[in-house]
Amino acid sequence: MSRTWFITGTSSGFGRLLTEQALERGDRVAATLRRPEALDDLVERFGDRLWVARMDVTDAGRVREVVDRAFRELGTVDVVVNNAGRGISASVEEATDEQIREIVETNLLGSIHVVRAVLPQLRAQGHGRIVQISTAGGQTTYPSFGYYHAAKWGVEGFCETAAREIAPFGIGLTIVQPGATPTGFAGALVTAPEMPEYAVSPAGEVRRALAAGDFPLPNDPDKIVRAVLDLVDSGEVPLRLPLGEDTYHDVRASLVARLAEHDAHRATALSVARSDQPPA
Rank of each mutant, 00 (worst) to 15 (best):
T4I: 12
T4Y: 10
T4A: 08
S12G: 05
L17E: 10
A30P: 12
A30V: 01
A31G: 10
R34I: 09
R45G: 01
R49C: 03
L50T: 13
W51P: 09
A53C: 11
R54T: 14
R64D: 00
V66P: 08
L74M: 04
V79I: 12
V80I: 05
N82H: 08
R86C: 06
R86M: 11
S89T: 12
A90W: 00
S91A: 02
A95N: 09
T96M: 03
Q99N: 10
L109G: 07
G110L: 06
I112K: 00
V114N: 01
R116Q: 06
A124H: 02
V131M: 08
Q132H: 12
S134T: 14
S134G: 12
G137Q: 05
Q139F: 06
Y147D: 09
Y148N: 05
A150L: 01
W153F: 10
T161C: 08
A163M: 07
A163D: 05
G170V: 03
I171S: 06
G172H: 03
T174G: 00
Q177M: 06
A180Y: 07
L189R: 14
T191Q: 05
A192C: 03
A192Y: 03
E194D: 13
V200R: 08
S201C: 09
A203R: 07
R207K: 14
L210K: 05
F215T: 14
F215N: 11
F215E: 04
K223R: 05
A227R: 09
D233V: 12
P238C: 10
G244S: 01
Y248D: 00
D250M: 11
L270D: 15
S271H: 12
S271A: 13
P279K: 15
